[in-house]
């Protein structure tokens, strides 16, 4: 591992991206899928509304995208800070 300040910066960057990803994770499932569904009721999707779609499909698709995005982001971050596995 590199010096202390560099490893702190690496960890801070990791926490930042985790926080962003988890906010999106919560917004699509608990937000659009459950709590904000009434607000989205005006947007029709195949015989029902957007909230129903998020609860049954949308959130799962976003979850997949989040994990792959995080994995790619972290691979880049690992290399930048020189902490990747050689």
């Amino acid at each position: 591992m590199a010096d202390n300040s560099s490893s702190n910066a690496y960890w801070a960057a990791n926490i930042r991206i985790i926080t962003i990803c988890l906010v999106i994770w919560a917004v699509v499932s608990y937000g659009f899928g459950i709590l904000l569904r009434p607000l989205l009721s005006g947007i029709p999707v195949g015989g029902t509304d957007l909230g129903f779609w998020f609860a049954q499909q949308g959130s799962i698709l976003v979850f997949i995208a989040l994990i792959f995005y995080y994995a790619a982001y972290m691979n880049r971050l690992d290399r930048e800070f020189g902490v990747d596995e050689q």
Binding site: C21, L22, W25, S29, G33, F52, A55, Q56, S59, I60, F63, L66, I67
Partner: peptide
């Protein structure tokens, strides 16, 4: 739908 979101969201 709770089962669908709950049993997949854990992987995040």
């Amino acid at each position: 739908s709770t089962y669908l979101m709950g049993w997949t969201g854990g992987y995040v």
